[in-house]
Design a protein around this nucleic acid. Sequence first.
DNA 1: CGGAAGATTGATAACTCTCAAAAATAGTGG
DNA 2: CCACTATTTTTGAGAGTTATCAATCTTCCG
Lengths: 286, 286
Amino acid sequence: MLRQTHPPASSIGIERNEDPPRVASASFMSEVSARFPAQAPEDVDHGERALEAKLSRFVRLGAAETDALRQLGRAVHNVSANQVLIHEGIRIDHVCLLLDGMACRYKMLPGGERQILGYLIPGDIFDAHFIVFNRPDHSVAALCNSKIATIPIVRLAATIRKYPRLATAFACSALVDSAILREWLLNVGQRHAEQRLAHLICELQARLKIVHRVSKDGSFDLPIDQVTLADTIGLTLVHTNRILQRLRKAELICLRQRRVTILDYPRLVFLAGFDENHLHLLLQEI
Amino acid sequence: MLRQTHPPASSIGIERNEDPPRVASASFMSEVSARFPAQAPEDVDHGERALEAKLSRFVRLGAAETDALRQLGRAVHNVSANQVLIHEGIRIDHVCLLLDGMACRYKMLPGGERQILGYLIPGDIFDAHFIVFNRPDHSVAALCNSKIATIPIVRLAATIRKYPRLATAFACSALVDSAILREWLLNVGQRHAEQRLAHLICELQARLKIVHRVSKDGSFDLPIDQVTLADTIGLTLVHTNRILQRLRKAELICLRQRRVTILDYPRLVFLAGFDENHLHLLLQEI
DNA sequence: CGGAAGATTGATAACTCTCAAAAATAGTGG
DNA sequence: CCACTATTTTTGAGAGTTATCAATCTTCCG
């Protein structure tokens, strides 16, 4: 009855219901910091640019605003692949900015089934607002070794107060996030297997392009295994693998060594029924 | 290849891609008003209470706040079943408050497939923020004859400014909305057919109970046909019908004449894996 | 080199869809 | 109140998709 999408043992390191996350005795951040000491800011130029790049799609950013954004991402931490970033016990007075790498939101079912709810890419901010009574309604985990910056909420609030345009930009970004979630529901609910996968790839490329994570040839890193891919589009690992092979055989995409190359973009877009309108890419000055 | 979930002719009245919505020459509201003249406020006591009831789950509401909420819902309109409430052409300076009845958000695919993204029940507010460049990323339609109130955004903003608690309550409400969307993605992506339906029913009952739309015996109105139900849980009409019969045969629920009665709540909850935590029902004073 | 994780394959079962038609229900006008 | 139509629900049969189980092949990494 239950689909055994995952190997019995927690092979990918993300928390399973079978072994609940330990209660963090110390706060999340100090925990991370202990393992990965903060680095000098100059290491993360590239990462900080992602946030600017994303927000500048929504509003024109002046030098002051750009500078303010850079100030936000000073407290840098490295997190390792599969590390759970948000779970019970996290302090709620910080938000996290993903500077580099990739992470995901996900939910688990008692039987071990996992649904990925979204990918976090550089420039994305995630917080713990969805936690009430110490019970988050979903978790966030790094998909590969990543860099995150922690921003005290009061700090972010002050910045937003000072620069109304940033407030607008953050609001737009939140709207896009929820639009993506709706698109995912449509994807999993109504599209068939090939389309789901194709659509996901189109969307990821579009989002990554904005933050300069796509090469000239259109290829990009996708640091996830096929189990995670399967849990994203609501299919089994085995079936996902076969769908993947069909897309490869059709010479639409190439996925090797955690890197995707889109071989025939027009045909892939057509197959997926992809309309990047839902990413609101064209929005300027709301 | 394409699932023909819907009859070829637009039987349920919701816009299809085949016949795009006409461009509203007048604004949406004046359009509605013309057909259904606004009523005297005293008719809608029950409806307004829904919003209060919902928000009071999040913060304690004083008399002044309750009163402010009631002032919001003065401009009442009746809308008919299947009427599209949000589409291109809508004015973006109002939000809508559903006073009575039921509505849904949905997305369409070029092939005619439709995915319901969420149900709006009394006390729910929906706006057009997701519209940019005159292209909404999804639509909203009434599921049955309903009553809505339109609130100028400036008015809502003023109220929120004046009563910070209401701001908190609205924020919480928005968090719950997105939590529900995540839960739906989990539902459609990972649960099997019976569980999906069971989960939907549990969730609707929980939400409707808050706004006093559930009878003593636990039954509630569900003014939708099985096609809509199918488009909600990502299954075919035929299959949904069969699943429904299974739940009936198992004496878990009874669905007749657009009314659901839960016959065995504990067993239904168990089957669904329903955890009302995601509705954040217990939240008080964030 | 050896093990572990990840990807792939094959065979079979289960689930879900499609097509087509019949039964039941709701709505309407006489 | 009944006849009549349109909508909605239900049924049946068969095809197609997706899941499950189990094994093999690859790749990664110490």
